[in-house]
Design a binder for these strands. Structure first.
Length: 893
DNA sequence: GAGGTCCGGGG
DNA sequence: GTGTACGGACCTC
C-alpha cells in the first residue's frame, strides 16, 4: 500500500518527539503514520558551559560544515547539539546568542527538519508495506500505522481527495456593521460534499428548521454538529469563498466563544486554531488543507471586482441569488418562504465555491510548486516565495555539506534594504522609438536569469571574496560587469546552478512528454505533466529574486548585481549585433527581450524566418547556455512609454498557423474607479488603431462616443462607478463620492441606508457643486430624470485612458476633441499617407519621415496647428532624400 | 517617479 | 509552533 503526504506534525511522547505524517492511501483512505526515531538538533560555534549541563541536551557532537557564503576551501568546526524537545530550541538558541555565540539552523520547523533530512517532500508517495498497525485513537484517520523507515516511491498523480465546501450566514447586532464573532451568532451553514455524505451531496444546518435543513436546538449544538459532520465526512480539503479571512476564523472563534473545543483536525490532541497576522488570518487544521478560491482567483485572473457573484459569472457563467445584507434579518425571522430564500442563498454560495474549486483546477499550480520545494501544500498556499526557496535550498545545501545561517534579524534586514536601494540595479530597458511600428519581431532570452546563473556559475558558494586568501587564480574566475565574481565550475560547481541545471533539464523532459500526451489526447496525463512543468518554471524563476531579497538567509547584493549586469550586457550586445550585422532597427527592449522592426512588406513567415536565423546566430555568439529565441511578431506595435505598449500580436502555432491577439502591457483597461464606458472605449480604440490601422476612424469613434455622452445616449449602467463603503459615511476624512451618496441615501430613506461594507454605485450629475457632492445614486437619477455631467465623463473617464494612446500617435487633445475639421483631414493625410501602399504615388514610405521647419530646420513629428514654426517658418514634409519636400503643409485655423 | 496610505472579500 | 509578515491601486509631494 502507498500513501501520499498531505501534512505533518509531531507530539511529545514519553519525553521524545513522535513524528506524524498525514495523508491519503492510494485507495483513498485517510491515513496517519508514526515515526519515532528522529530528534531535534541545531549547531553552535562554541559550546557554553551551561549548555553542556542543560537537561534538554542529549548529545553534543563535533562536526565540520561549510559556510555557504563566499567561495572557501576550509570547513567550519561546529558542534551539533541534539536535544529532547523541539519546542525548547528557541530558548536555547537565544541564550547561546545572548552569550555571544552563533547558532545555525536553529530556526527550522521540526517537521521540515525531519522531512528534509529524510528526503521527504510534500505530496510525495511512501511505501507502507512494512508498516505495522498502530493501536491508538489519538488520530482520527481511517488508518493508523507505525513505520520504522521511510521508503519513498516514485509515483506521479494524486490520491483521490475529499472536499467539503462551506459557507456561513450570521446576523450582525449592529446592522450597519459586518458581523463579528465576539458578538454575533452564526445562524446557518451550508455544506457541499464532493461525493456524498449520508446519501446527500449538500444540505444546510441551522437553528431554524425547514426543508432541506438539518435543524439544531441552538447555535452551540449546531456548531458541535458541524464538528461531527466534518469528522465523519473526513475531508482533505475545506473550501469556501473567502473562507481564509471570514468563514473559518469566524467558525473557530465562535466555537471558542461558546466553549466548544475545536476538535475537527485529524488528531484528537490538536485543536483547529486561527490567528490574525498582518491583517490576515492564518487557519490551522492539522491534516486538512484550507483552500480559498477567492485568494487563488485573485492571483490568476484580472477582474475589476472579485465578489463571488462577479467571479462566478465570469468564470462559470452563473450569477448567484441576490440577497441584500439589509434584507437578511427580515428573511431569517420572516415567513417560511423568506427563510427558504435565505437557505437557497446560503447553499448557492457553497455550490459556487465547490464549482470554482473543482472546475478551474486552481490547486494544480500549487501542487506543482509544493512537489518541487517540499513545503506542505497549506504552507505553499499561505506562505511566500522565501519559504519555498529556503526549504528547497536547505535540503540541497545540507546534502552537499553546507550549513544554513539563521534568518536575518530585523536590523540586518533594514541595513540590507538601505544598501539595496542605493546599490541594486535592475534590467536594461530601452527607450522605445515613438510612433506606430509594423512587422516587429519579438526575440527573447530563454529563462534569462536562470541561464545567466548557470552560465556564470553564480551561487553564494562560488562568490569570490577578494579579501580571502584561498581564491583561485583570476583565469579561474568569471568577473561580472558590475557586481560579484564567481569561481568557474571546474574549481567548484555552485549549488544553485546545479539545482537549476537539474530543474531546467527536467522541465524540457516533461514538456516533451507533454507533447506526446497531447498528441495522444491523454487528458489526465497532460494535466499532471503541466502541473509539474509549471512548478519547475515558477521555482526556477524565483532564485534570482531570492538572492537579492533582504529577508533571505543567503542574501548578497553583489550576486543580484552580477546577474542583472550580465543581463544588461547581453541585451546590449544583442541590440548592437542586430543593428550592425543585420542592419535592422531595435526599437524597444526590456530586460530579456528585444523588438526588431523588419521591412513592412514582409509576410509573417518571412519575418519569422529571418528572426529565427538572427536568434540562432546570436545564440551561437553568446556565452554558455544563453539562448535567444524568436517568440512572436507584433504586426503593429504602439509604444506609449517604457514598459507600456499596445500591440497586435501573432504567435506561431505548432501546425504552422498563427494565433492572433491584442497584447497590452502597462495599460490598465480595468480599473476600479473607471466606469465600463472607459474600458470599453479604450479597448475599441486600441482595436481600431492596431487592427484596422485607421487613426481617423479611431478619432471618429471617440468623438462619436463623446457625442453620445453629451446627448445622453449612453446607457447609465456603463457610467456607474462602484466603491465599497469601508466605514460610516460621516467618518470619511475628506469628501468622497461614494460616502456622499451613502449619506444622501440614508437621508432619503433611513430604512434603506447603506451599511458599512456595502458597495455603493454612483454616477456624476450636472451642477456647480464640488464633484463629490454631485455623485448620485443611479436609481434616484433614473427616477427623477436628472441629467448626468457629460463633461465630467469626458474629462475624467473617457479622456485619461484614451489620451495617452493618441498622444503616442501625436494626436493632441484638441485634435481629438475635433476642434476644426482640418485636423481630421490632416490626420488622414499623414497617418494614412505614411502607410499608403507603395503603388500610390502621392506619398510613399521612403519620402515622408516627418516634418521640418523650412526656415530654422527644427524637426517636427507632427506639424503645428498653424502650419508655421515658432520662428515664423513654414512646416514642410521632410524626407531622407532631401532637406524638405516641396509640399507645404497648409493648415487653416 | 518616489513614497506613503488605503482596501480587499465576507455578513 | 525551532514561525508567521500581503500587494496593488490610489493619492500626494
Amino acid at each position: 500500500m502507498l500513501m501520499q503526504i498531505l501534512d505533518a506534525d509531531y507530539v511529545m511522547l514519553d519525553g521524545k518527539p513522535l513524528i506524524r505524517l498525514y495523508g491519503k492511501t492510494d485507495d483513498g483512505k485517510s491515513v496517519c503514520v508514526f515515526y519515532h526515531n528522529f530528534l531535534p538538533y541545531f549547531y553552535v560555534d562554541e559550546v557554553p558551559e551551561w549548555l553542556k549541563d542543560d537537561r534538554q541536551v542529549i548529545e553534543i557532537e563535533e562536526v565540520e560544515r561549510i559556510y555557504p557564503i563566499f567561495y572557501r576551501t576550509d570547513k567550519m568546526k561546529l558542534h551539533k547539539v541534539t536535544i529532547h524537545d523541539p519546542s525548547k530550541t528557541p530558548e536555547l538558541r537565544d541564550k547561546v546568542i545572548r552569550g555571544g555565540g552563533t547558532a545555525y539552523e536553529a530556526d527550522i520547523l521540526f517537521k521540515y527538519r525531519f522531512m528534509n533530512d529524510a528526503g521527504l517532500g510534500s505530496l510525495m508517495w511512501i511505501d507502507l508495506n512494512n508498516a505495522t498497525n498502530a493501536g491508538t485513537d489519538i488520530v482520527r484517520t481511517e488508518r493508523k500505522y507505525t513505520i520504522n523507515e521511510i521508503n519513498i516511491v516514485d509515483k506521479v498523480g494524486n490520491a483521490p481527495l475529499k472536499v467539503l465546501a462551506l459557507d456561513i450566514e450570521c446576523i450582525s447586532a449592529v446592522s450597519t456593521e459586518v458581523p463579528i464573532p465576539e458578538r454575533d451568532p452564526i445562524i446557518m451553514i451550508s455544506l457541499v460534499f464532493s461525493g456524498k455524505f449520508q446519501g446527500r451531496d449538500k444540505f444546510v444546518i441551522s437553528t431554524r428548521p425547514g426543508n432541506d435543513v438539518k435543524a439544531y436546538a441552538n447555535e452551540k449544538e449546531m456548531l458541535k454538529g458541524l464538528i461531527d459532520i466534518i469528522n465523519e465526512f473526513d475531508p482533505d480539503i475545506l473550501t469556501g469563498y473567502n473562507i481564509n479571512n471570514f468563514d473559518m476564523p469566524y467558525i473557530i472563534e465562535r466555537m471558542q466563544k461558546l466553549g466548544i473545543p475545536t476538535n475537527f483536525t485529524r488528531a484528537t490532541d490538536k485543536r483547529a486554531w486561527t490567528r490574525k497576522f498582518a491583517g490576515k488570518y492564518r487557519n490551522n487544521i492539522l491534516g486538512r488543507v484550507v483552500v480559498d478560491p477567492f485568494v487563488l482567483i485573485k492571483k490568476d485572473f484580472s477582474f475589476k471586482r472579485y465578489t463571488l457573484d462577479n467571479v462566478s459569472f465570469k468564470l462559470l457563467g452563473e450569477h448567484k441569488e441576490d440577497v441584500k445584507y439589509s434584507e437578511m434579518e427580515g428573511l431569517w425571522k420572516g415567513s417560511k418562504n423568506d427563510f427558504e430564500r435565505l437557505v437557497s442563498y446560503n447553499i448557492t454560495d457553497s455550490v459556487l465555491a465547490m464549482r470554482l474549486y473543482g472546475e478551474l483546477n486552481l490547486l494544480d499550480k500549487y501542487i506543482g510548486i509544493s512537489r518541487i520545494c517540499g513545503l506542505l501544500l497549506q504552507d505553499v498556499l499561505d506562505g511566500g516565495e522565501t519559504q519555498r526557496i529556503e526549504n528547497f535550498l536547505l535540503r540541497e545545501f545540507n546534502k552537499n555539506g553546507y550549513i544554513f545561517p539563521l534568518k536575518p534579524t530585523e536590523e540586518e534586514m533594514m541595513e540590507r534594504d538601505k544598501q539595496r536601494k542605493i546599490g541594486l540595479k535592475g534590467g536594461f530597458v530601452l527607450d522605445p522609438v515613438p510612433g506606430m511600428h509594423e512587422n516587429v519581431a519579438v526575440l527573447d532570452f530563454k529563462s534569462m536569469y536562470p541561464s545567466l546563473i548557470r552560465t556564470f556559475n553564480i551561487c553564494p558558494t562560488t562568490l569570490v571574496n577578494k579579501s580571502r586568501t584561498d581564491n583561485p587564480s583570476p583565469d579561474k574566475i568569471h568577473e561580472s560587469p558590475e557586481g560579484g565574481s564567481f569561481v568557474k565550475p571546474e574549481i567548484r560547481k555552485g549549488i544553485v546552478p546545479q539545482i537549476l541545471e537539474r530543474l531546467m533539464n527536467e522541465r524540457s523532459q516533461v514538456k516533451k512528454l507533454m507533447q506526446k500526451a497531447i498528441s495522444e489526447d491523454k487528458k489526465e496525463e497532460i494535466r499532471e505533466l503541466n502541473t509539474k512543468q509549471l512548478g519547475i518554471k515558477i521555482m526556477s524563476n524565483a532564485f534570482y529574486g531570492h538572492m537579492g531579497y533582504p529577508r533571505a538567509r543567503i542574501y548578497n547584493m553583489d550576486i543580484g548585481n552580477a546577474i542583472t549586469s550580465w543581463g544588461r550586457e547581453t541585451i546590449q550586445l544583442t541590440k548592437r549585433t542586430i543593428e550592425e550585422k543585420y542592419g535592422y532597427k531595435v526599437i524597444y527592449g526590456d530586460t530579456d527581450s528585444v523588438m526588431v522592426e523588419l521591412p513592412h512588406d514582409m509576410t509573417l513567415e518571412e519575418v519569422a524566418e529571418i528572426s529565427k536565423k538572427m536568434s540562432d546566430d546570436i545564440t551561437q555568439m553568446l556565452p554558455g547556455i544563453m539562448e535567444l529565441e524568436f517568440e512572436k511578431i507584433f504586426k503593429r506595435f504602439l509604444p506609449l512609454a517604457k514598459k507600456r505598449y499596445a500591440a497586435w500580436c501573432f504567435t506561431p502555432k505548432r501546425d504552422g498557423s498563427w494565433s492572433e491577439k491584442i497584447d497590452m502591457k502597462g495599460i490598465e483597461t480595468v480599473r476600479r474607479d473607471w466606469c465600463d464606458l472607459s474600458s470599453e472605449t479604450l479597448n475599441n480604440i486600441i482595436n481600431i488603431i492596431l487592427k484596422e490601422n485607421d487613426i481617423d476612424k479611431a478619432v471618429k469613434y471617440f468623438q462619436n462616443t463623446v457625442k453620445g455622452l453629451s446627448e445622453g445616449k449612453i446607457p447609465m449602467e456603463k457610467l456607474v462607478v462602484t466603491k465599497t463603503l469601508t466605514k460610516k459615511p460621516e467618518s470619511y476624512p475628506g469628501v468622497q463620492p461614494h460616502a456622499e451618496v451613502a449619506k444622501k441615501m440614508a437621508k432619503r430613506n433611513p430604512a434603506e441606508a447603506p451599511n458599512v461594507g456595502e458597495r455603493i454605485s454612483y454616477v456624476i450629475v450636472k451642477g456647480t457643486q464640488l464633484l463629490s457632492h454631485r455623485a448620485e445614486d443611479p436609481a434616484y437619477v433614473k427616477e427623477k430624470g436628472i441629467q448626468l455631467d457629460s463633461n465630467y465623463y469626458m474629462e475624467n473617464q473617457l479622456l485619461p485612458p484614451v489620451e495617452r494612446i493618441f498622444e503616442a500617435l501625436d494626436i493632441s487633445k484638441s485634435e481629438l476633441m475635433g476642434k476644426g475639421r482640418q485636423m481630421n483631414l490632416f490626420t488622414s493625410m499623414t497617418m494614412k499617407g505614411r502607410k499608403k501602399d507603395r503603388n500610390n504615388d502621392k506619398l510613399t514610405e521612403e519620402d515622408v519621415t516627418g516634418f521640418v521647419c523650412n526656415n530654422c530646420g527644427r524637426p517636427y513629428r507632427r506639424p503645428t496647428l498653424t502650419g508655421y514654426c515658432e520662428c515664423g517658418g513654414k512646416i514642410v514634409f521632410s524626407s531622407p532624400k532631401g532637406k524638405g519636400s516641396k509640399i507645404t503643409v497648409k493648415r487653416n485655423i
